[in-house]
Structures are given as C-alpha cells and as structure tokens.
Amino acid sequence: MNLFAYDYMVRALIGATIIGLAAPAIGIYLVQRRLSLIGDGLGHVALTGVGLGLLTQHSPVWTAVVVAVLGAVAVELVRERGKASGDVALAILFYGGISGGVVLTNLSASKSSRSLVSYLFGTPLTTSAQDLVVVGILGAVALTVALLLRPWLFAVSHDEEFARVTGLPIRLLNLTLAVTTAVTVTAAMRTVGLLLVSALMVVPVATAQQITRGFRATMYLAMALGVSASVAGIGVSWQADSATGATIVLLSIVAFVVVTVGAGAARRVRAGRPSSARRPQDGATPDDAAAEPHEVVLGR
C-alpha cells in the first residue's frame, strides 16, 4: 500500500504539512498571551463566512477569510479595552458566528448539511488542486508573519507594557497577530476543520514547551510536532478509515500526554539526585536561588 500512489493523498499530505507548520507557528503567540481559545472562537466566526460563500455561490474559503479577519479585528479591539464585559462580548460574537453559519448554509441552494460538516471537521482527502493553492497562499502568509516578525511579536506577547515603553507599534502588532490567526484558522478548515483547528495551534506548543528552554526552540519543535501529527494523522486515518481531522488532533494529544509523563519522570529523577549546586559547601558563596527565601523564586 503506497500512500503516495494517489493524487488526492499527495494533495492531502501537502495541505497537512502546510497547516502542521503554520498553526503552531502562530499558536505559540496565542499560548504565550493566554489566548489559547481565540483560534476556536475565530473558527466559529469563520463559519458565518462559509455560509455566506455557499449562499452567494462564492468560494467559501475566501468569504470565510474575510469574515474571520473582521471577527479577529473585533476581538482585538475588545481585548485592548480589557473590560470584564469583553468576555461576554466575545461569547456573543462566537455563538453568533456559528449560528449565522448554520442558518446561512441552510438557506443556501445546496441545503446540504454534509458540506457544513466538512468545514466543521475537515475533509483533507477531498482537497482539490485549487484548494491546495488557496491553502498554500494562506499558509505562506501565516508562516511569513510568524517567522519574520518573531522578535517583535515575541516582545509584545511576552510583556506588552514593556513593549509599549520600547516604542513598538503595539496596536499594529496586535492587529497583525489577530488577522494572521484568522487567516490560519481558515487555511486549516480543509484539514482539521473549524472546530478542531485551535487544537493544532495550541497542543503542539503545549507539548514542546515542556522540554524546551527558549521561545525560538519551542516554536521550531512545535512546528515539527504539528507536521508529524498532521502527516501521521492522514496516514492513520487512511488505514483505519477514521475521521482525519479528529485523528490528527488525537495524535497531537497522545504526544502531549507522552511528553508530559516523560518530562515529569525526568524531573523527578533529577530532583532525587542531590547536585553540588543545590547543596553549597560551607564557606562557599551560595547561589542566589539558595540564598533567597523560596517565595521569591518564581518557578515557571
């Protein structure tokens, strides 16, 4: 059985590779700002765009991009104000997005609930050559922003207040990240679907950060994990005849659990072995961690 013997498999694998790289590359900034669920919310909003495309007989991907980008700008403006009521505003936006998508799709000529399900959960094996071009363009945009703007997006995600005092264009960077998130979500809807795309943005990052020491290393490892899960997920789902998008996400979560258990075990082994640094000799200068009361040692 050769995976590459069929054109549709090759297209599915190329699409999955692009998404596997792009989703965690943007997702790392969202995880760092504790906005892990934003991708999910924008997926809901994008569904209204899909419905709009089906109703007006335009390409649902492009209408989804437009609606998701508008939603992302709205989300960022709400977040910037930082009001407690913003939480409710976001909830209304997200539920409005998914309801709008369902209503518009039902109104459309096709009246097919099957097409809606394919956008919600992804159908990579039916990716056409035209779909692949769209995914390639959107994925390239997301990757370019994530990689080229890393120093600035890192600064604003790591410590927004400091970045402001550094004179960085905070609002432009935040809007760029929000819009790129929307682009990534819509690019991924063919592969993992709008309801599961957020998982591919978040889970590989959560896995990588348990064994890395730096931001750049976390980003690259998360991208490698994202590609592995996507490609393996396509292979497994083809063999087992399982839902592809969900298989990709489940494989990512398996990797997360394995790494979490492994990293925890490694930490326990290290903790059980007393090192000279942990127990300074009498008369030697103790290192800072040992000299301080442990409340101020910020264990992160």
Binding site: V31, Q32, R33, R300
Partner: peptide, 19 residues
C-alpha cells in the same frame, strides 16, 4: 510579567529590549 507558559531564554528576553 511572563504571562503564558511558553519559556523564553535569558538572551531572548534581553534581546527584546534591544528592539
């Protein structure tokens, strides 16, 4: 104010000040 759980090296944080 390291908000999220993503680690950053000492060098990465100091370099962000150079921006």
């Amino acid at each position: 104010d390291a908000s999220g759980g993503v680690p950053a090296t000492v060098h990465e944080v100091v370099a962000s000040g150079r921006l």
